[in-house]
Computed example of a mutant assay.
Amino acid sequence: MALLTRFTCRAQPLQRCICQTRLFGNGTAALLQSSEKTAPQSRFFPICEQPMLLPGSFKNKVAFITGGGTGLGKGMTTTLSSLGAECVIASRSLDVLKQTAEEISKKTGNKVHAVQCNVRDPASVKAAVDQVVNDVGLPDVVINNAAGNFISPTERLSANAWKTITDIVLNGTALVTLDIGKRLIKAEKGAAFLAITTIYAESGSGFVVPSASAKAGVDALCKSLAAEWGRYGMRFNVIQPGPIKTKGAFSRLDPTGKFEETMTDRIPVGRLGTAGEIANLAAYLCSDYASWVSGAVIRMDGGEYVLMSGEFNEMRAVTKEQWDVMEDLIRKTKGS
């Protein structure tokens, strides 16, 4: 795939990293963000998608990733597999999973297993985990990434629409976590759990109310279990990504493409995130390097949340000349 620009990262990670302005790569269908959709400051924030951890960081470890066939799940699986993990990816579409598993295995040289699972169905979750245990053993890493979402005025939502989203996001995460967690407790085996939610799980958001509510529940679930199940050797953390363009998500959340045109104006670093950047953070949080990190909810959004939440942040549009006038008026104010 042709690259727009290539940079060398100034940071000194554990592995040499090539940073580039390619977006939406690392296992997802390649999508490029044109120069019109990035802000000038984005040149200061080059993209590093190469695995930052040492090779073999996940050697002899099993990782179970829901929603692993596409998007962020595929990106995280690619990174974990490249670091030595034996990965198991799960979703409803077995054909997509098998294709992804074969693709990643060829790329990394490590076996990737495909297991069909409908996270909304307790029987399907049990059958999938049974297969994982029989094939590779209990997982050392569990990533709850399966999700569902679409935009809609809340007054247009049916009861079934609400149930579908909350069943996938909140109930699905709970079913997978409880099934695997109970087995880990019985086997006296620890594990690192990670959930992928969203920045509006914290703030709330209109027009995606079922998703916002369910993701907030996932955040609470992970923080609660971090407190309760640490004694069993389990860690629980959450990543709240900002806008990351994947084909499936944007087709439901920005079907006209209009939102994407103004999206980077809301992000201080001036660009969207990538699956590879999320994958590196996910790998760290699930690794032994983060063994003292539990109950953390980490925003990774280029500063979008803080820009939207600051009451006076829109004043960044005020020009120098306007500030001169305002400052003069403020100085003349009685009692200043």
Rank of each mutant, 00 (worst) to 15 (best):
P210S: 13
E311Q: 12
P122M: 00
S211Y: 09
L53W: 07
P55T: 10
V112F: 10
H113E: 07
A39G: 00
I185A: 15
G148N: 13
A220S: 14
T166P: 02
C87V: 02
P40M: 06
T100K: 14
R271E: 04
A90S: 15
I89D: 13
T256H: 00
K98W: 01
E261L: 08
G71F: 07
R316H: 14
T21G: 09
T28A: 11
T274C: 10
S82H: 01
F259Y: 14
A128F: 01
R16C: 01
K182F: 06
I65S: 15
I278Y: 02
A192V: 00
I244S: 01
A11R: 13
A192S: 15
K332N: 10
V208W: 04
V297G: 03
A29Q: 07
T333V: 10
G109A: 05
Q15F: 02
P255R: 15
T66M: 14
M263Y: 04
C87D: 01
A220D: 02
G73Q: 05
K163G: 00
D130P: 10
R183N: 01
I143Y: 04
T154M: 07
A90E: 07
F44C: 01
C17I: 00
L253V: 12
R22F: 11
R266Q: 08
Q240I: 05
T164I: 02
Q41M: 11
V88D: 13
G248D: 06
F259E: 03
G303K: 06
Q322I: 12
K98E: 15
S224K: 12
G270A: 02
